[in-house]
Simulated scan of single mutants.
Amino acid sequence: MRAEPTTLLIDTVAWVLIEHGRILCARPRGKDVFYIPGGKREGAETDAQTLLREIDEELTVALSAHTLVHVGTYEARLPGPATGSVRMACYTAEYTGALEPSSEIDEIAWFSYLDRERVPPVDQLLFDDLLARGMLPARPGR
């Protein structure tokens, strides 16, 4: 009897910050792709615990836990030849501090919907949903 291959599922949590019709994205050190800031859960962390830790590590700001609002959860195939998928639970939240890339992040950028092709498939689903809900305009300044 042959065992079914296991499918990899990467469980992540992300912070959605939209300002002036653009969404915050980050490029991790050593990578050439931008992502919505956030990361993988460690152990039995909740979404909130994961998000607060990851954003502090990546962008040196503190999210206000009591302001977290679930935007949506998205799942898409892994980019490239890998098999499996990424699940990304997305939240908005207020923050304190100055947005600065940390030692884990090479660059932060503000993307419009027109930059959708520059992010991985799961992030593209978020962009599409935000557009459909009127949270991210098709063109900045509109």
Results as ranks from 00 to 15, higher is better:
T67S: 02
V122R: 03
W110R: 09
E42T: 14
D123E: 06
S64L: 13
E107F: 05
F127Q: 03
L63K: 07
P37G: 02
S64H: 06
L99N: 13
T83S: 15
Y35C: 09
L114G: 06
P79F: 05
L63S: 05
L52G: 12
D106E: 01
A109M: 11
F34A: 11
T46V: 00
T83E: 13
E42W: 09
Y95G: 04
E57R: 04
D128H: 06
A98S: 02
L63N: 09
Y95C: 07
L125F: 01
P79H: 05
Y113F: 14
D123S: 11
L99F: 11
E54S: 00
P121L: 01
R118Q: 12
D32R: 13
L52V: 04
A93W: 11
Y95V: 04
D47Q: 07
V69T: 10
L51N: 06
R41H: 05
V119I: 11
L126E: 00
I108L: 12
G97F: 08
L125R: 15
T50D: 15
T50L: 12
R53S: 05
A65T: 06
I105C: 01
T67G: 01
S112T: 10
A76V: 00
I108C: 08
C90T: 03
A98W: 12
E100D: 15
S85T: 13
V61Q: 12
T83K: 15
R77H: 15
E45Q: 03
D115C: 02
L63T: 11
P101R: 01
Y95P: 05
A76Y: 01
G72L: 13
D106F: 00
L125A: 05
T96L: 08
D128V: 05
Y74S: 14
A48F: 10
V33Q: 08
E45P: 02
L99Y: 07
E57Y: 04
G39V: 07
D129F: 00
I55P: 03
R41N: 08
Y113T: 08
D123N: 04
G84K: 02
E94Q: 12
A98L: 06
P37V: 03
T50M: 05
Y74T: 10
A62Y: 08
V122L: 02
F34V: 10
Y113I: 04
T46P: 15
F127M: 00
T60C: 15
P81C: 12
A62T: 11
L114V: 11
H66Y: 08
A82W: 14
D32N: 15
L68I: 04
S103D: 15
A82L: 06
E104H: 07
H70C: 13
Y113K: 09
I105R: 11
S102Y: 12
T46Y: 07
I55K: 02
T50K: 11
M88T: 10
R53W: 12
P81G: 12
W110S: 09
H70K: 13
T50C: 11
K40N: 13
A48Q: 03
V86T: 15
E107G: 08
A82D: 15
Y91C: 07
A93E: 09
E107H: 05
L99G: 03
Q124W: 07
R41M: 06
A89W: 04
P101T: 00
I108T: 15
L51P: 00
E54D: 10
E117Q: 12
E94R: 08
H70V: 07
E107A: 02
